[in-house]
Structures are given as structure tokens and as C-alpha cells.
Design a protein around this nucleic acid. Structure first.
Length: 155
DNA sequence: GCCAACGTTGGC
DNA sequence: GCCAACGTTGGC
């Protein structure tokens, strides 16, 4: 089982939206970056756990835990001309973009904020979300990084 | 294949 | 709103 960090803007879709969704599940759609597409399509597996990270908000950070419940499948929002994420180069017969389904697991009592992650940069020096200029909305974490952040959340 | 221009991301 | 950093596009 792999571990991930998945970023979203809470003004668009945050962990509270996921908690309110039917069966506390949702598609993770709208990814339009090839590196992230490859992870969605080729690497993420049912049962993988991910941190739900809020970006572009008052307090960026990790707000909880989610689980992959459906492996990569074509992102149909790319086929719909009326949709924000429409992409004419993605065809149903040969889709460019993929998504997974996720399920709510846990919301932290207090988020592990970006500031807090930075305090622990000695233990989290490879964490991509701490690297300046990183633009990937989904990044892999090592088991050690995952466990360390879980202990931060429990404090 | 190069690279300038442009659009997007995301913290501040 | 600003701006650094990066990905993508398109002319050549």
C-alpha cells in the first residue's frame, strides 16, 4: 500500500465537502497535469491512504485522511464542453485525463499546518509539499513520512 | 529541438 | 493583489 498527499482548494472542494458527500465518497477529478495523471492512472491502488491537504486558503495544511476506493478511470469532465475542465484533446476512445474515487476516513481535530510541517523539516526534508515551486497536486510520501505526520496530528 | 510568451499554482 | 516557479504552447 502506498501513501499520498492530495491537494485541493477548500473553496472548491475541501474535506468538509467530502464528509457531506453521499457515502462520504467522491471522484477526484479535474487533474490536468501529466505527472499527476500518471500517478492517478498507473500508481494509485484501492486501499492506498492519502492526506487531504488544503491549499490557497487561510491556513494551508493537512486536514485529514482519505482512502482510494476506485482505481484510475477516464475523467469524463474532460469530454464535456460545458464543463470547466473540458479538454478537446481528450477523447472518450483515447482519454488523456484520469481520476480516482476517494472516501473520507478522518478529519484531524487540529490540522497539521504548513507552518508546523516546516518546523519538522529536518524529518520531512524530502516532502514535496515543502519544496518551493512544487506544483504537483498529488505527491507520494514514504512510510516514514506518513507515520511521522500522523504522530504530529495526534499531538 | 529551442525558447519566449503565456497561463496556472500557491504562499504570502 | 503580488510574484516566483513551473508547465504548456507554438513559432521558427
Amino acid at each position: 500500500m502506498k501513501h499520498w498527499l492530495m491537494k485541493s482548494e477548500p473553496s472548491v472542494f475541501g474535506i468538509d465537502d467530502l464528509m457531506k458527500a453521499p457515502k462520504k465518497r467522491s471522484a477526484w477529478d479535474g487533474v490536468r497535469n501529466y505527472q499527476v495523471r500518471n500517478m492517478l492512472r498507473d500508481e494509485m491502488q484501492v486501499g492506498d491512504l492519502a492526506f487531504f491537504y488544503h491549499s490557497s486558503c487561510d491556513e494551508p495544511g493537512i486536514y485529514g485522511v482519505i482512502r482510494i476506493v476506485k482505481e484510475g478511470y477516464p475523467d469524463h469532465t474532460a469530454f464535456d464542453p460545458s464543463h470547466d475542465h473540458f479538454d478537446p484533446k481528450s477523447k472518450a476512445s483515447d482519454p488523456t485525463w484520469f481520476m480516482v474515487d476517494i472516501e473520507f476516513i478522518e478529519k484531524f481535530e487540529r490540522p497539521v499546518t504548513l507552518d508546523k510541517l516546516r518546523v519538522h523539516v529536518d524529518k520531512l526534508s524530502d516532502l514535496l509539499v515543502l519544496k518551493r515551486g512544487n506544483r504537483l497536486s498529488i505527491t507520494p510520501l514514504t512510510n516514514a513520512e506518513w507515520r511521522y505526520i500522523v504522530t504530529l496530528a495526534a499531538k
